[in-house]
Design a protein around this nucleic acid. Sequence first.
DNA 1: AAAAATATGTCAGTCATGTTGACATATTTA
DNA 2: TAAATATGTCAACATGACTGACATATTTTT
Lengths: 166, 166
Amino acid sequence: MTDIFFEVEKHSDHQKFLKGMELLYFAYRDFISWPDDVLQTYGFGRAHHRVLHFVGRNPGMKVAELLKLLSITKQSLSRVLSTLVEKGHIRQDIGDQDRRQRLLFLTDQGQTLLDKIAEHQKDHMLKAFEKAGGQSVEGFWKVLSALLADDNRDEILARVNKDMGE
Amino acid sequence: MTDIFFEVEKHSDHQKFLKGMELLYFAYRDFISWPDDVLQTYGFGRAHHRVLHFVGRNPGMKVAELLKLLSITKQSLSRVLSTLVEKGHIRQDIGDQDRRQRLLFLTDQGQTLLDKIAEHQKDHMLKAFEKAGGQSVEGFWKVLSALLADDNRDEILARVNKDMGE
DNA sequence: AAAAATATGTCAGTCATGTTGACATATTTA
DNA sequence: TAAATATGTCAACATGACTGACATATTTTT
């Protein structure tokens, strides 16, 4: 892994940009395409995966929070969410303070499915982290954090760092 | 940027996975959504952008090469490619050795459009790189390279590193 | 020279996931 | 009581993927 192609100083600004952009595109694609087989078995897509993931990470989340986090419209969410509820992967409880709210939770079934989907991805990512080394992982996180849109960075980082660190 | 949330050793494997996955998702989304405004002005989408980008990076590329690189079907490519050709952003030359081939090139108009689309993205990425620091950028590249699918990593890295290094 | 393989393009239809705007219902707040 | 809020649903549409079949030109193989 000591390769001139990773030496940042040997790149012009334009080269840095191209490399970052292309690597991000291909790595994202290869990483994200993993769970598709499992998902297809259940008739679900990536949108369902996302919902399962974020509800799993934020139990009791409100629908409005999820909408904002995913930056999609009510209608888009509605389709996937209602399927997941129908099939028993997600449970919607009525808010205790505000009875208009629907609080979202994974059912046991939903948790099982999520674990199954994540299995390959987790393996894939942890192997990549090991291969690149801890120092690189730190850099990876720092650059990704810096790539977040300025107007929602703080909120996203708060969510990402939830239940982490010491 | 010295934050306990970037200290890799303070994370369990599962936490590392969650953080990597979520940051990758949000950063990719925020990065990729930038050029949409420019594209919409022209009636183009992300698929058009990708084609412009890769043809720009690999002048004289064959259609089959582009298909393989993008991992999409002929039909999918056909739609965007023919629009780009019609509107004068891409030129198709008949192969000199093999007259069945169509070699793809950006026209001046296509190059101008690509530069315009890339303008914001380039700015965005270079700012993120500067903010994170050179060491982090190296880590970013290393992790992304390790995240590539094993069966096409070499080919992708060869393309990404084309015309780079010393 | 004829047959097979290859590179490209196109037809028709389908699917997943996003969008908009309008409207309905229940519930809370002013 | 009236207004605002949280959620859900309807119909219609756009993008960008997919499949499988078929057509054409050209090159390679037999």
